[in-house]
Amino acid sequence: MSAQFATKRLGKELEKIHNSLPPGIELVSAENFEEWQLDIRVLDNNPLYMNQTYRLKFRFGSSYPIEPPEVVFVKLPDRAIPMHPHIYSNGIICVDLLAAQGWSPVQNVESVCMSLQSMLTGNTKNERPPGDEEFVRANRLRPRDIDFYYDDNTV
């Protein structure tokens, strides 16, 4: 698929993002059509995430939006990895939405940010996914090449 395909769509998205973004979501950088960074905040006073801002990194392939983007949380001096049973301590996120079977090509950067924001808002568990330590130590794969086995839809 031509890179132009993704570029055209991302151009449109960027135009819209520059105009307006929902509260708690901010564009940090979008210098090309391969990688963007955005900050997200949780808006209510969930004690797990109060007064915290988290950095998201999006990477787009040439088949975007037919293929999902690769989205991870990034650790920086002033940005931690949010505590959540579906977020590994290296920033990899285990969500159906970002996997081939859960992704829809009508999703976009903004809708992904909103879903992740709401995933944090709804969480009460101060814990990492089971097997976090081992996964973080052993994983050499890019997030898109990992098969996560989803076993519930309750969170």
């Binding site: 049973p85 579906h86 996120i93 285990c94 969500v95 159906d96 939405l97 859960g102 999703q107 809708s111 909103m114 879903s115 709401s118 995933m119 709804g122 996914p129 089971p130 097997g131 996964f135 994983n139 794969l141 090449d145 990992i146 098969d147 996560f148 086995y149 989803y150 076993d151 519930d152 839809n153 309750t154 969170v155």
Partner: peptide, 18 residues
């Protein structure tokens, strides 16, 4: 919680793709 949001994980299996 929106319907598009997370599902839980049980095991992680690395695979090289399709």
């Amino acid at each position: 919680m929106s319907s598009t949001a997370a599902t839980s994980n049980k095991r992680i299996i690395a695979s090289a793709g399709p």
